[in-house]
Design a protein around this nucleic acid. Sequence first.
DNA 1: GTACAAATGAAAGTTGTTTTTGTTTATACG
DNA 2: CGTATAAACAAAAACAACTTTCATTTGTAC
Lengths: 146, 146
Amino acid sequence: MEHEQGAVVLRSLRLKVTPRRLAVMNCLGEERAYLSAEEVWHRVRPRLGSIGLPTVYRILDELAGAHIVTRIFRSDRKQYYFLCPNQEHHHHFVCDSCRHVEDMDLCGLDGMTREIVRRSGGRVLSHILQVNGLCAECSKQNREMP
Amino acid sequence: MEHEQGAVVLRSLRLKVTPRRLAVMNCLGEERAYLSAEEVWHRVRPRLGSIGLPTVYRILDELAGAHIVTRIFRSDRKQYYFLCPNQEHHHHFVCDSCRHVEDMDLCGLDGMTREIVRRSGGRVLSHILQVNGLCAECSKQNREMP
DNA sequence: GTACAAATGAAAGTTGTTTTTGTTTATACG
DNA sequence: CGTATAAACAAAAACAACTTTCATTTGTAC
Ligand SMILES: [Zn+2]
Ligand SMILES: [Zn+2]
Ligand SMILES: [Zn+2]
Ligand SMILES: [Zn+2]
């Protein structure tokens, strides 16, 4: 994610264009894998001179709330973040070993949503869908979970 | 979940049949909604005289690991648990307002899994799927999130 | 440039969960 | 039944991932 591109995104969210926000977006944008807040912190610190960890948490939260970054679920109940260039509604295939994230273009839940509404009469507001496994490379190397 | 039924489940998991494990299973089995560890703790305490919160966590973890209880995802980073009598592979429709959980009989991810494997060459090991919204009753009452 | 709301850092606080350690209890076996 | 043994448990403290607070700095609109 380029500087000007990040600035456009931030302005569209009515957020001020600050060096920290741009740095966090660039950091995630350079990765094809997910990162924790602390990992983002370590990576952006050198570029900025200094940045507080609470600021990183705040920025990631803003970006996740605006669906610019996606939260990745893991069993260690830490929060992980992934910036996906694809802005269409879709979900992710996540490698348990190397953290690589791939898009699954299909959502496939519209049918299920309709079925729920038809059968139970409730209202569907959101859904969580994430597929876990080993990416092609890790699968070959038969690596185990980190 | 009856006492003997719980005992059978525990024995099949090679776990000792203890009053605390039975109480936790009964507690969740009586609910059609999800509970937090602390909520389970409050509910089983009177029946047992006393039980430590770490014990509740340990038992819930054992049961979740054995797929006897399901973890429910929420945006507060607390863990919630639901004991589902349905032992087939399936997923849940969860009410954001009253915590009611309903089964969705279809998984519908086999096709997507095959597509991932075909396109990326990786290996799929698990998936997370949860639909959130308002159940029929809460939808009528137009309740908001708790 | 100036005003002002928004953003940030540093430190302290919160809280859900886990670890540790010593004691109790379920279960198998004689 | 009694006993041995490993598993389960309580209590307390520890842990770690976040969050809050509040004083200071910095974008942004005019
Ligand atoms: Zn991988
Ligand atoms: Zn979807
Ligand atoms: Zn409901
Ligand atoms: Zn499934």
